[in-house]
Design a protein around this nucleic acid. Structure first.
Lengths: 117, 117
DNA sequence: GCCTTGACCTGGAGTTGCTCCAGCTTGGTA
DNA sequence: TACCAAGCTGGAGCAACTCCAGGTCAAGGC
């Protein structure tokens, strides 16, 4: 499939996919005879994972490391597991942030209600 | 209080506080006779709110709008309420993203367990 | 009285992670 | 044959910081 559909399926924008490829966190996207990219299902799965990792705050540096491990094959699985487990911990922190912000908003909104009467 | 303590209390960095002031989303921070900033409790509360709004994904543009409403006085309260309610909705979306990513991580980790045996 | 130290100042450059754009190629349709 | 949509590349632009050089100022030590 072409880049437009890959974007739709992964969640990333067309530009971001090209940017990710250029910066080396997406391995070898094949090209057709027209020199345009053709995405495999494996490509899409990988891009989708990257999308969610990035969307939830993983820095590019870490994604880079993860991509390198991925390309190095099955021997790196326990290291990859560490990366994902660390990110799962990070998600907990983000969730706590949302809770905290929600409380603050509720507090502010209550004050506004008071003023408006 | 000085900028270092303001940073500690609000959660923002010293540089970010100065940047926010320069870009106009923090109203009038008074200066001492040494021309250094002195923060009131109201300043800290405002910075803390900005910190949480930004931390949970509110763009500067929106924070700008909110700051303008804040400076315009009590007549803008219902508009400010709209901004905060919209942000509360946004938080729900972020929470759904975290859920989704958590599921994906669990899935990936399960696959890794399978491979490792 | 002078020197050092540390907190703060400003203006401006650098960084991250995209996003947009101009100008070109290519395959398909009328 | 002309045109159009979709894709390509290299590079500029942008948001939101982050860092740094070079300077001021007050306080403490000698």
């Amino acid at each position: 499939m072409r880049i437009a559909e890959a974007a739709l399926r992964s969640g990333l924008s067309v530009d971001t996919i090209r940017y990710y490829e250029k910066s080396g966190i997406v391995p070898e996207i094949l090209r057709g005879p027209d020199r345009q990219r053709r995405f495999s299902q494996e490509n899409i799965d990988w891009l989708t994972l990257l999308y969610w990792l990035r969307e939830t705050g993983m820095p590019m540096r870490t994604m880079h490391r993860f991509a390198n491990l991925y390309q190095a094959g099955d021997s790196t699985i326990s290291e990859r597991k560490q990366v994902l487990l660390a990110h799962a911990e990070h998600l907990k922190g983000r969730r706590a942030d949302l809770d905290r912000c929600e409380q603050l908003l509720a507090h502010k909104l209550a004050i506004y209600e008071d003023i408006e009467g």
